[in-house]
Design a protein around this nucleic acid. Structure first.
Length: 278
DNA sequence: TCGGCACCTGCCTA
DNA sequence: ATAGGCAGGTGCC
């Protein structure tokens, strides 16, 4: 079915890091919840037993895909990863994950985040397995620099603690960010230390319902050069202004669901280069 | 505003 | 096998 979710393509598209496949099931940490999903049947279980909107079932994927398929490149990318969806992640975990991701790689991001969970997250048992939930803002706010660096965060340790404090203090309020427009939310988020434009876009797209966010990392910049050189002029080195201009040009082209276009293109480029996922 | 640079550290590749 | 380069950027000057 055209509107079926493909879990492999969705988990292995660089949005999430704390997921593990075992047999025909995927196990993932999402904030203070554990999500288990069975491949093929897409049957979902959650540790908290709460209704799971992680896979954005409310998205009208037929409409979205119809809206973004503006040219042959994006059409091909969509064809390559059927059932790929944007996720609706726990915002705090998303903030910490993408602060951690800066100037790093997927494998290292994953080990670092796992260490954070093991050290600061609550241990729970679910489906016959043991998990550590994602640490709370309070837990990471109270962590010492030494402990955080010990998890492999490196120079990002101070960003992680500072961001956790901002969220604990309510300087950053996810409810408010979710209910406002992309531009306002982005300006709020980039005030957080360690959150630049690219990281802000990831947080907005993957956890705050801003489907008009289009994270421009080095993969996407290369991608835009490769296929869209005639449409957009995107410098290899993006300053704040140039990043914003590039974003606006891209939204003008791909439309309000540009974030979905980004995810398909990102997935395609990494798959072409045989880059490993989780 | 813009360009240049340092930056933790563990993967990955040659 | 193992040393060195590099990785989904960011802040500071």
């Amino acid at each position: 079915m055209i509107n079926d979710i493909n879990i492999d393509n969705t988990i292995n598209s660089g949005q999430v890091f704390l997921w593990e496949k075992d047999g025909n099931k995927w196990y993932g940490i999402n904030g203070n919840d554990v999500i288990v999903i069975e491949k093929n049947t897409n049957k979902i279980l959650t540790f908290t037993n709460k209704k799971c909107d992680f896979f954005r079932n409310d998205d009208n994927i037929v409409k979205i895909i119809n809206d973004i398929k503006k040219d042959i490149v994006i059409k091909y990318a969509i064809l390559l990863s059927p059932g790929l969806r944007i996720l609706r992640q726990d915002p705090f975990q998303c903030v910490i994950s993408f602060i951690t991701s800066s100037n790093s790689n997927i494998q290292k991001i994953k080990t670092t985040l796992l260490r954070l969970c093991n050290k600061f997250g609550e241990e729970v048992n679910f489906c016959g397995k043991r998990f550590n939930l994602f640490p709370s803002p309070k837990a990471l706010s109270n962590a010492s620099m030494k402990e955080l660096i010990g998890c492999g965060l490196g120079y990002r340790a101070r960003y992680v603690r500072s961001a956790s404090q901002d969220i604990l203090n309510g300087i950053i309020d996810f409810k408010q960010l979710r209910n406002t427009d992309y531009y306002t939310s982005r300006d709020q988020l980039t005030k957080v230390s360690g959150v630049g434009q690219k990281t802000a876009d990831c947080i907005l797209l993957f956890s705050l319902d801003k489907l008009d966010a289009f994270p421009l990392d080095r993969w996407m910049v290369r991608c835009m050069h490769k296929y869209y050189n005639a449409l957009f002029q995107i410098d290899e080195k993006l300053t704040r202004r140039k990043y914003e201009k590039a974003h606006d040009d891209i939204i003008d082209y791909f439309g309000v669901y540009s974030g979905y276009a980004q995810q398909f293109l990102f997935k395609m480029e990494r798959d072409i280069k045989l880059k490993k996922w989780l």
